[in-house]
Amino acid sequence: MPDPLSQLMADRDWLLADGATGTNLLNMGLSSDEAPELWNADHPEKVRALYQSSVDAGVDLFLTNTFGGNASRLKLRGAAGRVGELNRISAELARDVADKAGRKVVVAGNIGPTGEIMAPMGSLTNDAAVEMFHEQAEALKAGGADILWVETISSEEEFRAAAEAADLSSMPWCGMMSFDTAGRTLMGLTPGHLAALVERLPNPPIAYGANCGVGAADLLRAINGLVASGNERPLIAKGNAGIPRMEHGHLHYDGTPELMARYAVLARDLGVKIIGGCCGTTSAHLQAMRAALESEPVGDRPTLEGITAALGTLDSQAD
């Protein structure tokens, strides 16, 4: 049987994914020195409320609160031994919310980078990375996640390790990189590199794309590069709600719901299948995005000039 996400993609022209996790939890009282994943056990009612707000906004897919839920990142908070517990609880909360939605909503088990640099440039070996990702994947699977959602990856080595862990877990997965450095990842990869990489994997993702980075225009520049590669695998776009600015000691994203609605339509017209938001994206943004996707007719594939005219100038120029 196809996985729930593949079934939805087969039936729909586009799907709406959720928005931010960390920045929304900060707005709900999470302190900047707390690991969001600890709230799965300590404040499950708030994590559940975040999930519910996404479902109420009309998403077809939302992520678990487990982006930093691997042993390497949790070790920094003295919680390396709680990987299984925290990931499982988060997925269980998400599963319950999704099952009560009254429609098909996909639970995506969120897996972010380890936070370490992989060999040969760093000290993290492939085996160690696979072990960390696999531990997280198994807990998300046990909690009821439908798919694994690997995002914000910068290196080919870490992307491959996450793919291997998904294979060991027998879980369908999606994979995204963040092109936040003049159109490249922090490790220098281009969208074209990612487009070629996914097809060389023994277990390619069911969809792939770009997330986070800088502004929405830069995110769509990366998507444009994926489209230009000729790879026809379903695409994902999950861009930040504008650019972060410090205001009165707090981080504020300047992207309005209207801007994110324009971004969503442009992403759809580029051929993106799964459209969502990342940092700074609230339920108000998601509601505007869904309304625009449902009401505005499909247009011609936008050019980079058309994207910047609609969303603003690029934050960084590609080299």
Rank of each mutant, 00 (worst) to 15 (best):
4 P>M: 00
5 L>N: 11
6 S>D: 10
8 L>E: 13
11 D>F: 06
11 D>Q: 15
15 L>Y: 12
17 A>C: 05
17 A>D: 08
18 D>R: 00
28 M>R: 15
32 S>E: 13
35 A>V: 04
37 E>N: 08
39 W>C: 03
41 A>Y: 14
43 H>M: 07
46 K>R: 15
47 V>G: 03
50 L>N: 13
53 S>W: 01
54 S>Y: 15
59 V>D: 07
63 L>E: 13
64 T>S: 09
64 T>Y: 11
69 G>I: 00
71 A>T: 10
72 S>K: 12
82 R>V: 02
88 R>I: 00
94 A>E: 05
95 R>C: 00
95 R>N: 01
99 D>T: 02
109 G>W: 00
112 G>F: 06
113 P>E: 02
120 P>K: 06
120 P>Q: 02
123 S>D: 14
127 D>W: 06
130 V>A: 08
130 V>K: 11
133 F>I: 00
134 H>Y: 15
137 A>D: 05
147 I>L: 05
154 S>H: 14
160 R>V: 01
161 A>G: 04
169 S>N: 12
170 S>G: 14
172 P>K: 09
173 W>Y: 15
173 W>Q: 14
174 C>R: 11
177 M>G: 15
183 G>E: 03
183 G>Q: 07
187 M>I: 01
188 G>P: 14
190 T>A: 12
195 A>L: 01
196 A>W: 12
197 L>F: 09
199 E>L: 08
200 R>H: 12
202 P>Y: 06
206 I>E: 15
207 A>P: 13
213 G>M: 01
216 A>Q: 09
224 N>Q: 13
226 L>T: 06
226 L>P: 13
229 S>A: 05
233 R>C: 04
235 L>R: 11
239 G>H: 06
241 A>M: 02
243 I>P: 09
244 P>W: 10
246 M>E: 14
247 E>P: 10
253 Y>R: 07
254 D>T: 03
261 A>R: 10
266 L>H: 06
267 A>T: 04
268 R>P: 14
270 L>I: 01
279 C>K: 12
279 C>W: 05
296 E>D: 11
301 R>M: 08
302 P>S: 05
304 L>P: 06
305 E>L: 07
308 T>A: 01
